[in-house]
Design a protein around this nucleic acid. Structure first.
Lengths: 146, 146
DNA sequence: GTTCTTGCAAAAGCTTTGCAGGAAG
DNA sequence: CTTCCTGCAAAGCTTTTGCAAGAAC
């Protein structure tokens, strides 16, 4: 399952002339196994379970490399660290300011907004770099004000 | 002009039982004069021109106090520091990932999206806490890909 | 006089960078 | 063999915190 996905990513990177190193393969594996988003810290811990020698700086550098290559995206959910995930299956994040729950919604929900911004402001929304902050269903029902 | 606005803000804070200190008044003045968004660093510099004794920690603490009181909002435009502005005239930020230009758009543009998220996910978008990242008109025309 | 705010200094949290050794191709 | 990547250590940037002195009311 995740193994195939990693193999495909590795192949595509190699095809582009990128080097395949222990850190890169381990990071791709950790990302594929994650399912949803992970912080750099969490990914470093996951990688360290198998390859303790991989340094945190390498985690950040490799994540940035993979981002430039279009393989990884990262999103800011709030005031904490950024979260990373594989770039296939793009999605937007909704984060609840009360309980911290994070929901993923398909990018189609944003299509009308993107069209309006392109039409009225010439602005081409290009990334799902930031989450939308608000209140989830459960927290909306429990209380009214902050 | 800005003076009236500051006076009104000061009055409303006092009416709520909040203390009016040098730092608070200076910060409100700097925010009112700013017109658009400013980083905490920029606001600290502006305040320091008149009151050099106001410490940066006080800037952050005061901004947070004003945020809790609903007077100030802050937004994350990208990877740098947060930007602050007075909470009247709410707006969303569009930031260009190429040239860094920041546009402000009225919240009405987001109304349909907010309704869709409320209807389909029970999610109540409550803040304009993050900018939307994309490419502005000028940068879209100049080039096609990253 | 009481309570809230501030200045200071220090640290926290997350991320980036310079450099020299080492691995990938 | 050449180029790119990594480990290490150190620092960067933004923001937060503990504490005692000081200001607001």
């Amino acid at each position: 399952m995740g193994t195939d996905r990693v193999a495909a990513l590795v192949d595509s990177l190699r095809a582009r002339g990128e080097r395949i190193t222990t850190a890169r393969r381990a990071l791709l594996t950790a990302l594929a196994e994650a399912g949803d988003h992970r912080t750099a810290e969490e990914l470093a811990a996951e990688v360290a379970r198998v390859h303790p020698e991989v340094h945190r700086a390498t985690i950040y550098r490799t994540l940035d490399t993979l981002r430039r290559l279009g393989v990884v995206e990262h999103t800011h959910l709030g005031h904490g660290p950024a979260v990373y995930h594989l770039a296939d299956e793009p999605h937007q994040h909704l984060v609840c300011e009360d309980c911290g729950a994070v929901a993923e919604v398909p990018p189609t929900v944003f299509r009308p907004l993107e069209r309006a911004l392109a039409r009225d402001y010439g602005f081409a929304v290009s990334s799902r770099h930031f989450a939308l902050v608000g209140r989830c269903r459960e927290c909306s029902q429990g209380r009214d004000a902050i």
